[in-house]
Write a protein that binds this DNA or RNA. Structure first.
Length: 838
RNA sequence: GCCCGGAUGGUGAAAUCGGCAGACACAGCGGACUUAAAAUCCGCAGACCGCAAGGUCGUGGGGGUUCAAGUCCCCCUCCGGGCACCA
């Protein structure tokens, strides 16, 4: 009777054996008497939020990372492959409200459940260095870093706008604002309130974060572009315009095109600009108009479609003075000018800016051309239409600057402004400082105390961690939950010992994920976030793998944190990861899997039906890892069938392989043996290459399938002894080793069946014998006028002359040549022949 | 609007450096085994014409470079993603 492949019995068996020996997945130490002598390799998958359930996107992410980790281990690297939990965040509070379960309990239960799923999947994680961000031994270091940043002026407090729901009487996270309304009160528009918030000064590193992108060739171009746009550097000039009737006031504008300043026919202020109030004082009609504009803008901002609002302006009846020309231009308030960018004021040059043009046309403002385009073609005598945006021109109507190129004029105008003290060259970034305050419970408490005597006082290091209180009633009423916990709120001032109040904001969860991968190198350390020597050994991460949805926030915060830690002299690397890989989404029926679409496929369900190996392997087979993957259950069944074929093949011939164990294979294999060994060594070469960077595991698996198909086709030769037991052994053992990174359970089972000792993933990766892999005869396509007409068999090393002779002697080729002699013969040895006839 | 991706059989895809388009699978069809089914095994399978041999066409559309284009260049359409009043 034929043995059957039953993953449901094989997989749990090995899972239990491996779980009992956690050292199997541990990296060798970085230093000390047992220090590793191997090269290091740090492979990291983005840590999940412990929602309680893995989804297919996770499975795909971890299947990629695990295949790589196992492969690199077999290649002789000292591999660090850790896992942890991004465990703070709002869902735990929501669950607490809904089920009356404390957030900590809910989170830890979810972690346990997901860890079981990961182990069931056979993922080779070093659980000894597991990191759970909601536990004090981790978040105390968030607080420690906060204090270091505070000392250096990198953490600071300022007024900022937050989302506020009046009915809930609390601040909402951005995610809780749905179409401008509260998620719990659908008819209640969210307000923007000004509150004191904590910020991390990421802008201090803006230039370095930008420059660093040029030195990350191992990151996808897409991610680098997104970060560049996000940082948004622009070079320009700040210029002070004078204000008529207010000699003490200046309007400082930011422009990238100071060369067009003689064409400025108005100055535009953001509605929130501090000067607006002064200029409208005593004029209630103007005040009402500005208030209405602010109101509309606020609503648009809350609804998230600020860009859709029509451009509007209000002429204030006041005038500004162009410092270069002394010209008097009207001051307007415009709703498209952003207070948060530049200086909150612009000069409007309708002739050379699209938006200014649109605005000037609408309100009948003067459009004055000050750049004459350099017309390249003499034939074009009609003037170029305005607005003319390009810098490819010369200045006109610009006083003494006429005739200068745009570039020269910019430099000259900057120099004049700087000398006269009314302006300067300025680089502006779109990037803003990182607001880390959250008026939520389930996060890292910010380690600051507010003392009536001493003001803001940092909690001393030796009083860390500031523990998050466990017994807390979570409600949606009354603002920050921690402010209602009396024991937490009331404390003593570290400086004067008098009564004081704690900061009740907690940190954004992106803080947790900004440095967790450093903690993995030394997760047990209770004296420091990690040992710098150990981090130096492991960093930078050799390969980071995750979804592209983290291209900006997480990956820019992580880079920022790395630079801060470097400046704290904790690490020596400038960037966290040398290589980044962003995997595609998992799609089903044309849409991303989601509960609302009802197209979610549960990993547990797949594992129960087809096994972990088949589920993992399908997620690698269905598409190259960087592309979106269309989940088709029939495909999983197909992989399961393939694994079953492998199982039957190896089980059938394992007894023969065992006979050949330890025996040397014949020196010059021939016939079927040679053909099979050749295919094997070609497959080894192909897969080794796939793993070395291209990562097209779909073709890796296809290559193994081809090998297995050939072995099945030669089944009778294997059975009759035509192929020697030594060769059978080599074929089967190598096959199992090739599968080891992809199907860990099945390959382990078969490795044991073949008499292998220990763990299959601890064996050295097979090496391709190039001599054996080489074909001695190959088929060469022969084209006549670029069309395939024949295929000829020639020795693999046939030179051009031999190729030509073989092609010309072919009967079909002769027929197509019809007696003519080729005018041109293209000979590509090893590839093809093309005969060109007229 | 701007910036990235992508488009190849009925389906997922392959073709890594310009050299046989469709490997490997899925679904399908035909056959073997079976009382039957499942499982397994063998075979067919881009479209069109043809009994066949074979031929013609064919990688979103149009043009170009080349002996040769899915691949390179120019223009366009559609789909997905990111950013978006950034001065």
């Amino acid at each position: 009777m034929e043995v059957r492949y039953i993953p449901g019995t094989i997989e749990p068996k090995w899972q239990a054996i491996w779980a009992a020996n956690p050292a199997l997945y541990a990296a060798e130490p970085a230093s000390g008497p047992n220090a590793s002598t191997k090269p290091k390799y740090y492979v990291l998958e983005m840590l999940p939020y412990p929602s309680g359930q893995l989804h297919m996107g996770h499975v795909r992410n971890y299947a990629i990372g695990d295949a790589l980790a196992r492969y690199m281990g077999m290649q002789g690297y000292n591999v660090l492959h850790p896992m942890g939990w991004d465990a703070f965040g709002l869902p735990a509070e929501n669950a607490a409200l809904k089920n009356n379960t404390p957030p900590r309990q809910w989170t830890l239960q979810n972690i346990a459940a997901m860890k079981r799923q990961m182990q069931r999947l056979g993922l080779a994680y070093d659980w000894a260095n597991e990191v759970t961000t909601c536990l004090p031994d981790y978040y105390r270091w968030n607080q420690w870093f906060f204090l270091r940043m505070y000392e250096r002026g990198l953490a600071y407090r300022k007024q900022s706008k937050v989302n506020w729901c009046n009915l809930c009487a609390t601040v909402l996270a951005n995610e809780q604002v749905i179409d401008g309304c509260c998620w719990r009160h659908e008819d209640t528009p969210v307000e923007l309130r000004n509150l004191e918030q904590w910020f991390y000064r990421i802008t201090a590193y803006a230039q370095e974060l930008l420059d660093g992108l040029d030195h990350l060739p191992g990151w996808p171009e897409k991610v680098r572009t997104m970060q560049r746009n996000w940082i948004g550097r622009s070079e320009g000039t700040e210029v002070d315009f004078g204000v008529e009737d207010f000699p003490e006031e200046k309007i400082r504008v930011f422009t990238t095109r100071v060369d067009t300043i003689f064409g400025a026919t108005s100055v535009q202020l953001a509605p929130e600009h501090p000067l607006v109030e002064k200029l409208i004082a005593g004029n209630s009609a103007l005040a009402d108009a500005v208030a209405a504009m602010l109101d509309e803008q606020k609503r648009a901002r809350e609804a998230g479609d600020l860009g859709a609002v029509e451009k509007q302006g209000i002429a204030l009846g006041s005038y500004a003075t162009n410092p270069y020309s002394g010209e008097r231009v009207p001051i307007w308030v415009a709703n498209y000018v952003l207070m948060e960018y530049g200086t909150g004021a612009i000069m409007s040059v309708p002739a050379h800016d699209e938006r200014d043009f649109e605005f000037a046309v609408k309100y009948g403002l003067e459009i004055r051309k000050v750049i004459e385009p350099i017309i390249k073609s003499v034939k074009t005598d009609e003037s170029v239409a305005l607005p003319f945006i390009s810098e490819d021109g010369l200045l006109v109507n610009s006083g003494t600057y006429d005739g200068l190129s745009c570039e020269t004029a910019q430099k000259k105008l900057q120099a004049v402004a700087a000398a006269a003290g009314f302006g300067e060259a300025k680089i502006t970034f779109r990037l803003r400082d990182w607001g880390v305050s959250r008026q939520r419970y389930w996060g890292t408490p910010i380690p600051m105390v507010n003392c009536p005597e001493d003001g803001l006082v940092p909690v001393p290091d030796n009083q860390l961690p500031v523990l998050l209180p466990e017994q807390i009633e979570i409600t949606q009423e009354g603002g920050s939950p921690l402010s209602r916990v009396s024991d937490f709120l009331h404390t003593t001032c570290p400086k004067c010992g008098g009564p004081a109040r704690r900061e009740t904001d907690t940190m954004d969860t992106f803080v947790d994920s900004s440095w967790y991968f450093y903690r993995y190198t030394d997760a047990q350390n209770s004296n420091a976030p990690f040992d710098p020597a150990v981090a130096k050994y492991w960093f930078p991460i050799d390969q980071y793998i995750g979804g592209v949805e983290h291209a900006i926030l997480h990956l820019i915060y992580s880079r920022f944190w790395t630079k801060v830690m470097r400046d704290l002299r904790l690490i020596v690397n400038d960037e966290p990861a040398t290589r980044l890989f962003t995997q595609g989404m998992v799609i089903k029926d044309g849409a991303k899997m989601s509960k609302s679409k009802g197209n979610v496929v549960s990993p547990d369900d797949m594992i129960a039906r087809y096994g972990a190996d088949a589920t993992r392997m399908y997620s690698l087979f269905a598409a190259p890892p960087d592309r979106d993957l269309d989940w088709q259950e029939d495909g999983v069944a197909g992989i399961s069938r393939f694994l079953s074929r492998v199982y039957r093949l190896v089980m059938r011939f394992a007894p023969i392989a065992l006979v050949g164990a330890g025996k040397r294979r014949e020196a010059a294999p021939a016939g079927v043996s040679l053909a099979l060994l050749r295919k094997l060594h070609q497959t080894i070469a192909k897969i080794t290459q796939d793993f070395s960077g291209r990562w097209h595991f779909n073709t890796t698996i296809a290559a193994i399938m081809e090998l297995v198909n050939e072995l099945f086709a030669a089944e009778s030769s294997l059975a009759t002894g035509e192929v020697s037991p030594a060769v059978v052994g080599e074929l089967l053992r190598s096959l199992v080793l090739l599968l080891a990174p992809l199907a860990p359970f099945l390959s382990q089972e078969l490795w044991a069946e073949l008499g292998g000792k220990g763990e299959v993933f601890k064996q050295p990766w097979p090496v391709s014998d190039t001599a054996l892999a080489r074909e001695d005869e190959i088929e060469i396509p022969v084209q006549v006028n670029g069309k395939l007409r024949a295929v000829v068999r020639v020795p693999a090393d046939a030179d051009k002359a031999a190729l030509e002779a073989a092609a010309l002697s072919d009967a079909k080729v002769q027929e197509w040549l019809a007696g003519k002699t080729p005018v041109k013969v293209i000979l590509v040895p090893g590839k093809l022949v093309n005969l060109v006839v007229k």
